[in-house]
Simulated scan of single mutants.
Amino acid sequence: MEDGQRTQGSRRYVPPGRSFGPQQLDFPPVRNGIDYLASVVEHLDEAVSDVSARDLKYAVLHLQAAAEVLLKARLLREHWSLVFKDPGRASRESYEKADFESCGTSAALERLRDIAGIRFDGKEIQALSALAADRNALQHYGLTHNAAAVEARAGRVLDFLMRFLDKELLPLLSGSEREVATRDMAPVVEGVKNISSYVQRRSNRLRGELKGMEKSTIQCPECEQMTLVVAPGGGLCHFCGESWPSGYELANDYWLNNSATWGRPCPQCDDRTLTEGVIFADRAEADDALYCFTCTARYTSRELIPCAGCSRSWPIEAVVEGVDAPLCPDCYEQTEPEDVA
């Protein structure tokens, strides 16, 4: 499988480009953190099998590990000494030998906030603290708790880490490091769509972030969430991160996934990307919206009328009155005066 492999009937995950055979360990910080996330997705992916108590246990352990590694990977972008528990006693020799005590999650968050200027809200910090408590109980004492509650907390942290990677870490990478990270993230991005706690948490947050943008928000043809914000000539999904560079490609993908009718020329821009059946967040019950994925013109079926000359859809107020049949302005100009007397 191009985006990762699993053995038949198991959850074993193999990142892209790696074989099942033995090989040398090669996990620099960012890749290490993403690999932990891959394991989390493997254990919580409901499309593979039901999530067992054991799956949830290892998801929590590896999610906490991912949080620690990725937060410290971002600290390293500021300075290597910041990952030491006591930066004042840091030495380059100890760092290169990995022979030192590193800072904890709380300290990493404080340093990222105070030194790197990254903002965290209280709920994100609470979620990370709760996950750390769950991890410590599982690791050292054994945890007896409602599985649904533990999974919900894991979903909150998973949402945070995916956003942290996307906004604060991946943009700082370049060259082969960026290529490897993008490749390794592909199956993670795909797998999180099957984790109900993650989907619910992310959807709830995005509803707040996209408030006021309902008139330009439609269902994404990739992840099927109502989180795709359209713009002239394309759009960006705020849930899965998929983007479209042209209105034509987005119209085609929307048609393939939603059985919409498209290909009509738009009365405003003339491009054949006017699509019928586009459902917007501000009118989720309507199925008669016509939307142009090129210029963002939006109509209802009651606002358009077909031209008797060219069959193109036109706004009712734009057709010429006083003739036997409605004509668009272009067809009317080509008609002899006696023909419309």
Rank of each mutant, 00 (worst) to 15 (best):
M1Y: 03
M1P: 11
Q5C: 03
Y13A: 02
R18F: 10
F27W: 04
F27S: 11
P28E: 07
N32W: 05
D35C: 07
L37Q: 03
A47M: 00
S52N: 03
H62W: 10
Q64M: 00
A66V: 01
A66M: 02
A67G: 07
V69Y: 04
L71G: 04
L76F: 01
E78C: 02
W80T: 11
W80S: 08
W80I: 10
L82Y: 13
K97N: 07
L112I: 06
L112Q: 10
R119M: 01
D121K: 07
K123E: 14
E124L: 01
A127Q: 05
A127S: 14
L128Q: 05
D134A: 06
R135E: 09
R135D: 06
A137N: 12
Q139C: 01
A147V: 07
A148M: 05
A148H: 08
V150A: 12
E151A: 12
A154G: 06
R156D: 02
D159V: 11
M162N: 08
D166C: 06
E168D: 14
E168C: 12
P171F: 14
L173M: 10
G175Y: 04
S176C: 04
T182E: 15
D184L: 08
P187E: 01
E190W: 02
E190T: 13
N194P: 01
I195N: 01
I195T: 04
S196M: 03
S197G: 04
R205Q: 13
R207M: 13
K211S: 09
E214I: 02
I218K: 08
Q219I: 14
P221G: 06
L228Y: 03
G235E: 00
G235P: 01
L236G: 00
S246L: 03
E249L: 09
L256A: 15
N258K: 12
N258C: 12
S259L: 14
C266M: 03
P267S: 12
G277W: 04
V278K: 07
A289S: 11
T300H: 11
T300C: 01
I305F: 10
I305C: 09
W314F: 12
L327H: 10
T335D: 01
